[in-house]
Structures are given as structure tokens and as C-alpha cells.
């Protein structure tokens, strides 16, 4: 058993060390001293455990509602599977967890909670929004001041921290009661889908429900489509779309930052 790092020296040892820390079966990399007590397996095991436990703790801090829904014990076990399948690709811990939602879709033991991936998406969007660039939200008064004939061609710029998560499940209700209430309330009797709007107009991340069809309006606006055409597309695609409610919600949440006149109408 070789006890010393080979020709490539430290860099090579570090590479094998990093690999062995997250690998499933415990295999102490060559080059770790073995003439010590307690055994090198136990000593390396402490190291592995610390790395995994801190990654699991970071996930729990990032996805508190997912943790509350499945329980602490289940969450930790699930996080360890995730860490094994999706080890960090970046040295920045703050970037870890982007793949958690899609992992949950494939994680059979959690299949009883089909809304879990969308809850994770909502929590990740909140987290990303928290770290996004600042921008000043535009007041709806600026839109109301425009002459009526200019409204159709105005382009609305979206806030960099804004995110929309459409779900077939009532994710805003589930997220909200599990975030604010000591005892979660049972969700509404009609277990209908909700679309979450995540914004951070100032220092706080806000989560609210988007009215039906408003996500389509946002998708159009995000492509730089002018308000008139975007509203047309949303009402064609969704019968219940109400432009006034959609605009009030978006401006009220600080989702719109700029108004600009496009060249074509």
C-alpha cells in the first residue's frame, strides 16, 4: 500500500482526496498516512461526514419548507442521496442546490408528495432572488400617465430578481402556511394549481399568487413583446385572463422596472 503521494504530488493527492470524500463506498485515497491511531478509515470517515453534513445543512437552510413537509430525518437522508448524485461543481456553496428540484422529481421515496419539486423550485427562486441584482421598481402611475394610444406599444422591463413558477399544485398556499404558521393549515378545499410570483423590490423577497394567465403575459413581456401584443396573446391563450388584475399584481409586487416605447405597434 503506497503511503506517499506519487509523482504528481500534492495536486494529484488533492484530486483523489476530493473524489474520495464524496464517493459512496468509503475508500481512503492512497497517500493518506496509515501509521496512525485510530485507523485511517475512521479518521477519513470523520472528514467525509463533516463535508456531507455541512452540505446537507446548507440544503436544509435553502429548502426549509421541503424539509418541513417531509420531516428532518427524511430530508437529511434525501439530501445525502442528492449530494452523492450531484456533488458541488463550484467552490461557492451559495450556488449549491440548483438541481435539487429536478432531483426530487426522480426521487421515488418522495413520490407521494407530487408538489414537492415545485415547492423546491419556489424556494430556490426565492433564494436566487435574494442574491439578485438590485433595481428600482417602476410605479404603475407612470403607465397610467401615458396617452392611451401609446399603451399598446410600450415595453415593460422585468426586475432581475423576478421569477414565475407555474404549478398544477397550490404551491403558494402550501409554501405560505408552512412558512408563516406554527401549525400548517390544510390547503384550500379545491386543490387547484397556483402560479407563484417571486420578487424582491427592496430588501425582502416577496411571494404572491399570480392571477390566471398572468404568467403568459410575463413570458411575452420577457421576450420584449410590447404590452398590446402581449396582452392579446395572454387573453387568446387564457379565457380568464384579466389585464387590469395582472398589471396591478405585477406593478404592486415591484416586478416591472422600466417603461420604454417600442418603434413598432
Amino acid at each position: 500500500m503506497p503511503a506517499q503521494p506519487d509523482g504528481n504530488g500534492l495536486a494529484d493527492l488533492q484530486h483523489r482526496f476530493a473524489h474520495a470524500v464524496l464517493q459512496a463506498p468509503l475508500e481512503v485515497p492512497d497517500g493518506i498516512r496509515h501509521d496512525v491511531r485510530p485507523t485511517r478509515e475512521r479518521r477519513f470517515g470523520v472528514y467525509r461526514n463533516n463535508v456531507k453534513a455541512s452540505l446537507a445543512a446548507a440544503l436544509a437552510a435553502r429548502f426549509p419548507v421541503v424539509e418541513r413537509l417531509v420531516g428532518e430525518e427524511f430530508f437529511t437522508a434525501m439530501a445525502l442521496v442528492f449530494i452523492e448524485q450531484h456533488p458541488p461543481r463550484s467552490p461557492v456553496l451559495a450556488e449549491y442546490g440548483a438541481a435539487f428540484a429536478s432531483f426530487l422529481e426522480e426521487f421515488d421515496p418522495a413520490a407521494d408528495l407530487p408538489y414537492l419539486p415545485d415547492i423546491a423550485r419556489l424556494e430556490w427562486s426565492r433564494y436566487v432572488a435574494f442574491h439578485s441584482a438590485d433595481a428600482s421598481a417602476a410605479d404603475i402611475g407612470r403607465l397610467a400617465e401615458l396617452p392611451p394610444e401609446a399603451l399598446g406599444s410600450v415595453r415593460l422591463g422585468l426586475h432581475p430578481a423576478m421569477a414565475v413558477i407555474a404549478s398544477p399544485w397550490p404551491i403558494v398556499s402550501v409554501w405560505s402556511t408552512n412558512t408563516h404558521d406554527a401549525t400548517p393549515e390544510a390547503p384550500a378545499a379545491d386543490w387547484t394549481g397556483e402560479t407563484a410570483l417571486v420578487t424582491r423590490p427592496h430588501l425582502d423577497v416577496l411571494v404572491q399568487r399570480l392571477p390566471p394567465g398572468a404568467d403568459l403575459l410575463v413570458a411575452e413581456l420577457a421576450q420584449g413583446i410590447a404590452l398590446g401584443a402581449a396582452a392579446d396573446a395572454a387573453s387568446r391563450a387564457h379565457d380568464g385572463f384579466d389585464l387590469a388584475t395582472a398589471l396591478a399584481t405585477l406593478f404592486g409586487a415591484g416586478a416591472i422596472t422600466t417603461l420604454s416605447q417600442g418603434s413598432s405597434s
Binding site: 403607465l143 399598446g152 423590490p201 404572491q208 392579446d232 389585464l243 387590469a244 398589471l247
Partner: peptide, 30 residues
């Protein structure tokens, strides 16, 4: 192209949205 009806509808929607937002703005999600 935007026809007259759409322009009127847009203006009405924007005015209604501005009314809904006044007062609600300061409180937002909380």
C-alpha cells in the same frame, strides 16, 4: 397593428390597475 377597441380596452385596464394598486402598493405581500 392596434385597433381602436384594443386601445380603449388597454387604457381601461391600465386605469383599473392603477386604482387597484393605490393603497395596496405600500402593504404588498405582508
Amino acid at each position: 397593428m392596434i385597433n381602436r377597441t384594443t386601445t380603449v380596452a388597454l387604457a381601461a385596464a391600465v386605469a383599473a390597475a392603477a386604482l387597484m394598486s393605490s393603497g395596496a402598493n405600500a402593504q404588498t405581500a405582508n
